[in-house]
Structures are given as C-alpha cells and as structure tokens.
Design a protein around this nucleic acid. Structure first.
Lengths: 134, 134
DNA sequence: CCTTGCCTTGACGCCGACGTCAGGGAATAC
DNA sequence: GTATTCCCTGACGTCGGCGTCAAGGCAAGG
C-alpha cells in the first residue's frame, strides 16, 4: 500500500508517517516511480507507535517497541528493552500523579482560604482600597 | 531596585522579568538613564506569578492575580477572576490526574501481560523467529 | 490534451517560556 | 584611562510533533 492508505488505516496523516521515517522509526520500500510502499507489518508498527503516543510516550520511547516488532516478534513489548521503558514510564507516572495531587491539594486550599476571606469582607468589613495610584 | 536585584530576590532571571513585561504582566518605571526601576510591590507581584507557575499555571492564567494585586488588594487571589481561575484549574487537574491514573493502570496491565508472556516463553517454549527478512 | 488526485522533496510556521548572543551605553573602582 | 559590572534593545535558538504551503512529477479518466 502507499502512504495515503497507510495513513488512513492507521488513523493519522501522511505528514506524520514521513516524520516517523525522518526519525528512523519507519522504513519504506520504494516503487519504481519513487512512491513509498508499505505492508501490513508497517501498519502494525504505526499502530504500536500511536498506542504508545496516546499513553503519553514520546517518539524516542517508542523506538524499542518498533525495533522489537521489526526483529520479528509478534508484539512490540516482547523485548526486554520495551519492558524497561514500561517500567520507567510507570515510575514517571507515579511521580507525576503524586506531584499533581499535591498541587491539587494546595490549589484547593488556596481557593478555600481565598473564599473565606472574601466572604469575611463582604458582609461589612473594611473594603480594600486601591493603594497604588493609577 | 533595578532589574538584577529584583530577579535575584524573586529567584529568577532578568530575561524572565523582561519577558513578563513584554507580556504586559509587569510594568517598570524608568530611571533617568533608562534603567528599569521596581519597588516591593513589584517583587510581590513576581513572587505571585512564580508561585502560580510552580503550580503549573501558564502565564495568561496568572494575569487576573497580577491585576488583582495592582488594583491594591493585599493578595492576588482576593478577586473573583482569580477565584475563577483557581476553580477552572482544579477541574483541569482532576481531569488530568484521572486520565493519568487510567494510563498508569493500562501501562501497568501491559507490563504485567508482557512479563507473563516473556516468562512463559523462556522455559522452553517455541522461540520467536524473525519473520521479516533483514 | 486537460483535469484530478495521488505522490515527491524542501522548508517555514506553530506553541510557551524563556536562553543566549550581538553590539552598545552607564556607573563605579582604581 | 581602563577594567568591571551592571544595564539596554533586538533578534535568533530551543524543544516535539507535526501543519501547511510551494513547486513539481506520475497515473488514470474523459
């Protein structure tokens, strides 16, 4: 199949596939007229990349999975290097999620405090005056 | 104080302060020689921006807080517009955290499955052969 | 022959928050 | 005078993952 069909079947664009090729993730055979030619294996490869991208993996992190598929393994995560990426990603996710949870707590606390102070001033407290001349 | 001192006291760089000014978040008076001049209020303002940035707010989201401070309020979150940003951010954080939790679960499941399959093949199963000619 | 639709390469644009360099002025110490 | 250390403006570079446009080649239908 040609690049347009591969893009459509993989749910992406030709630009993206050429970009993958420029990054060395996808290798295309060429027809006599210079057109890129792909097979079903390439489709699975692109689908693997897309799945990982949806998980938040960046392109470099998908490389071990791609190499694994091209080595003939039926799944991209059948190789140790891929498992290592999984594990590293899990660690990063845990750190990130925990960090966001802390931020969420802090922002929530700030909101609660600010709402309290606002309600305490409205009922008749001293109104905040503009101190800086305009 | 001049820009270098403000940068140091705020824990940032002069480039960053000039960038804030270019975005309209920071307004500097000018000395006779053209140097930017700041006061303690500007320091609090920059500190407010930095705090929010640490929370993951982008610059535009800090604008209501900055405006609030410049309006004379003792805190950047003493204005309704700031509270609205807090609330919107909380919602975004909840969505993002949940999304990451789902991803974490899925990646964890993929890892577990891949590890299982790997251990099932090692003890003597059929070795995966390279199907694609190299 | 002409149009349409696919394909090719090359190259600039985008976003956010700055980093970094170029080229020069200003204030202070010696 | 000169060396140092601030300061100024302007402008290009960075990172990732493409989008988008330019200019043209190739194949099929009418």
């Amino acid at each position: 199949m040609r690049i347009g069909e591969l893009a459509e079947r993989a749910g992406t664009t030709t630009r993206t596939l050429r970009y993958y090729e420029s990054r060395g993730l996808l290798h295309a055979r060429r027809a006599e007229n210079g057109y890129r030619t792909y097979d079903e294996g390439d489709l699975r490869l692109v689908q693997q990349i897309r799945t990982l991208q949806d998980f938040g993996f960046d392109l470099e992190e998908t490389r071990p999975f791609v190499d694994c598929l091209r080595a003939g393994h039926p799944a991209g995560d059948a190789c140790p290097a891929s498992l290592a990426v999984y594990r590293r990603k899990l660690g990063e996710l845990d750190v990130l999620i925990e960090k966001l949870r802390v931020v969420r707590t802090e922002v929530g606390a700030q909101l609660a405090r600010a709402e309290l102070e606002a309600s305490a001033e409205l009922p008749g407290g001293p109104e905040p005056r503009c101190e800086l001349g305009g």
